[in-house]
Design a binder for these strands. Structure first.
Lengths: 211, 211
DNA sequence: TTCGGCATCATCCGATCGGCCAATCTTTGC
DNA sequence: GCAAAGATTGGCCGATCGGATGATGCCGAA
């Protein structure tokens, strides 16, 4: 890795963004884009084929079936390290990605220099988080206020897809009463009183991400 | 403009994406990024100050108050031409931008070459649309299926914000009965039977955009 | 001009939702 | 081991929602 710099695999579904990032990265002597992928399947193949040091992955993969966290998990045991680059900072996304084994989580809001620093740090084996991300996580753990449960996030995500209580119950394999209990908790925690309002508030607070 | 190539103003709220696009564009001899802006206000100032030939604008400006179409309208009478570069292709966004006077509408899904071609074409005074965009517009006009009304789109957008029927009525300055009528029409057109489902379907069909 | 689409409004009724109360069971942590 | 928190379920009731139906006015196309 040291002779030709940090070898990077770019994963993003937007060719234009990909080309931009590649141009940006290749302008630096100590790192190089060795492959690109536009979806999860080709990303997996590229990892196996090119053995990059770092997978720079845009989690905002449009209407992807794979949750992005999935792929991170699939790559985790390979020698490559995954650096997630995304637009959103929903609690569920961050936690899911980190749980899956991502070595870093960066927001596109960050300045370009931060990206390079993050790439180098990740290559050194360190774990990198955007300041905004870090503060989100800190806020999460040290907030006296209401914290939505994992299960409640599930409910919110299904809610955003327009399911009714019966459907919610069937989907989550619980009774309708349980669903209503979760909903009641969510309502009080978010300070709303309708399902639609809950979805709006959840999106507002970046608890879930709009479909 | 001809001595130093096409002068471009980049507008995008993500520094990383901006840096990537700048690196990409500046790699071409016949075009150059002369200024960058991360929000609408600084974009307007930059237009007045640098007089770019083209404003390459990312409409996907996070939680922007300004609709993006607004700014396009504000720039329109200046000598600069606006080329919109975005992720989404909702009917309302496209039509709004074109109505506002954008000279082009490109999806990030497009290959990078298409971006350069679009920049050059826009500089020549032509109007450019992504193939996907064009087909969306064509589909819109030649589709036998259900077409949601302007008013119904309004309802859908408010619906996505979690309002109840009473609130809907107050917001739209009509009676609750009218709201329910609109809802009924929307349900049959989208093939759903709940407000949440309608929101999901509307987002799915790119009629509205998740907030 | 006539027909159809759109927006507007109203009423009735069954289904669903949201609020309130109470209970059991598992996990987590002190 | 015990307390706290989360997940689970049940029932009751008023409020809201969704479906069906009908009616009016406006405007553009045939």
């Amino acid at each position: 890795m040291s002779e030709d710099g940090i070898r990077i695999l770019l994963v993003d579904d937007h060719p234009i963004v990909r080309a931009g990032l590649a141009a940006l990265i290749n302008g630096h002597g100590d790192m190089r884009v060795v492959a690109e992928a536009q979806d999860m399947d080709s990303a997996l193949r590229a990892v196996a084929c090119h053995r990059p040091d770092i997978v720079l992955m845009d989690l905002n993969l449009g209407a992807a079936e794979h949750s992005g966290a999935e792929i991170t998990a699939a790559i985790r045991d390979k020698p490559s390290r995954v650096l997630v680059l995304t637009t959103y900072q929903t609690e569920s996304d961050i936690l899911r990605a980190l749980d899956a084994g991502a070595s870093g989580y960066l927001l596109k809001d960050a300045p370009a220099e931060e990206l390079f620093a993050a790439i180098r740090a990740t290559a050194r084996g360190e774990t990198v988080l955007s300041p905004a991300i870090a503060s989100t996580l800190v806020r999460r753990s040290s907030r006296p206020g209401p914290t939505v449960t994992e299960r409640e996030v599930e409910v919110l995500e299904l809610l955003a897809r327009g399911l009714g209580n019966k459907e919610l119950a069937k989907e989550m394999l619980v009774s309708e009463g349980t669903v209503k209990a979760h909903l009641a908790h969510i309502y009080t925690k978010l300070g709303v009183d309708t399902r639609a309002g809950a979805v709006a508030a959840a999106i507002e607070r970046r608890i879930i991400r709009p479909t």
